[in-house]
């Protein structure tokens, strides 16, 4: 279980001014300011949950993850991982953590992949029997056999990521942090990683915290989302609830036989007209799609229509735009 209470992380940075004059000024009398990267974040994640930790670039995601994993010390606030503070008892906490940074491998670049697993075996004191059993599981879940003896530098990005995941899971941690695990991967590789994540979660009740910009990851894996922006938690809840609350509309795209008719229905908005095509949007709690379709077909002949459900992207758009 992960408990974060009122986490704050501040960094002291030197203000940079432009030009030679600014550089000289910075040298003689540097102006320092405090930047708050994480500003009062609190949440609680239970065993076995898969939580999407989302937010735009610079929102404070990585800083939070680094505090939860003991890399950074919070300026104030409390973190408990399975009841233990990572800052007071780092080695005890990390014994039970697996961490994968999508953009930074922990594998040894120049050596065959298997050597990195051997190092993990020694670091986490995994017994020979347990190691053999875990390796068998990893081979079958991630298909490692074909490239286990290849130097890491020669692996494709997808293979490398599979290797990283295996290295992070060899000691069977109860909590797995995944920082953009599917970044840069092709569709098949992404799917393999997602299947693996689902599998370890189901098999071992592993708690998984996933930071990603890939909304497909979120839709396929996360039942709960925590959205952070400007260092604060702005949303926390089940994915469906968030969509219901923040994107409670549904859209119908209609292709008319002839010209687009004038549609004036209370509570239904025309959001797009393009030739014979029209997109209508309405509050799905107030109207059923059937009632809107029936009202439209009474006014004009329809060739084709489709109903669009809101997507996670619509929910997140407002935060991402806000930060842009």
């Amino acid at each position: 279980m992960i408990e974060a209470t009122n986490l704050i992380k501040e960094f002291r940075v030197t203000k940079k001014e432009s030009g030679l004059r600014g550089a000289l000024k910075g040298l003689i009398r540097p102006e320092r300011e405090t930047v708050r990267a994480v500003d009062g974040v609190s949440f609680r994640i239970n065993k076995g949950e898969i939580v999407g930790y989302l937010g735009p670039n610079g929102a404070g995601k990585s800083t939070t993850v680094k505090m939860l994993t003991g890399i950074l010390h919070p300026t104030s606030g409390e973190i408990l991982i399975n009841g233990v503070s990572p800052h007071r008892e780092r080695t005890r906490v990390v014994q039970n953590l697996g961490v994968v940074f999508g953009q930074r491998t922990q594998l040894n670049w120049d050596l065959r992949l298997g050597e990195s697993f051997e190092l993990q075996r020694r670091i986490y004191r995994i017994s020979d029997d347990r190691f053999a059993a875990q390796m068998d599981t990893m081979r079958s879940l991630l298909g490692l056999t074909e490239f286990e003896n290849t130097p890491v530098r020669q692996l494709s990005l997808g293979q490398r990521m599979r290797g990283d995941l295996a290295a992070a899971m060899l000691h069977s941690p109860s909590i797995l942090f995944l920082d953009e695990p599917t970044i840069g991967l092709d569709l098949t590789a992404k799917q393999a990683i997602r299947d693996f994540i689902r599998e370890v979660n189901t098999l071992h009740q592993t708690t998984i915290i996933l930071t990603t910009h890939d909304l497909e990851d979120v839709e396929q894996l996360c039942k709960r989302l925590i959205v952070i922006n400007h260092g604060r938690v702005v949303e926390d809840g089940p994915l469906e609830d968030l969509i219901d609350r923040l994107a409670p509309y549904r859209q119908i795209e209609i292709d008319f036989v002839q010209e687009v008719p004038v549609i004036e229905i209370q509570g239904v908005d025309v959001v797009e007209v393009n030739g014979n095509r029209m997109v209508l949007q309405f509050d799905r709690r107030a109207f059923s799609a059937a009632s809107v379709i029936s009202a439209v077909t009474q006014r004009a002949a329809v060739r084709d229509l489709s109903v669009r459900e809101p997507e996670i992207a619509d929910v997140l758009k407002r935060y991402y735009q806000d930060s842009a």
Partner: peptide
């Protein structure tokens, strides 16, 4: 370059 991150994630000094 953040080279101590991985070391901090291991249960070793």
């Amino acid at each position: 370059q953040g080279g101590f991150d991985r070391m901090l994630l291991r249960p070793l000094n």
